[in-house]
Amino acid sequence: MFQVTLQHFLVLSAILFSLGVYGIVTRKNAVMVLMGIELILNSANINFVAFAKYGNFGFSGQIYALFVIVLAAAEAAIALAIVLNIYKTFTNVNIDEIDNLKE
């Protein structure tokens, strides 16, 4: 039971994923939403690496995790630039108040 198997890693990543989603859904601050996204990406990475180890896929899983990290970096940079712009325009970054396209 306490012997660590694949399921343990997967459950860890599932919980992490759920927490990320929760963060995305509930936080109003755009930066917090970004943090939730990072959590989700990390949970995905854990899955990749875990399957890479337990599934005998060689290092491809790790490579993909590496790519995800790179993409996360790029995404974070772009997203933060956008957040900065939003802040310049609306003087806050509460995404529920930024609904100009709705009307």
């Binding site: 890693f9 990475n45 180890k53 590496l66 970096a73």
Partner: peptide, 19 residues
């Protein structure tokens, strides 16, 4: 740390450095 446990030591380093 989880990465390390999963025998992905390079990834763990990258995680710390990049993230």
């Amino acid at each position: 740390g989880i990465y390390v446990l999963l025998a992905a030591d390079f990834l763990a380093v990258v995680q710390i450095m990049v993230y």
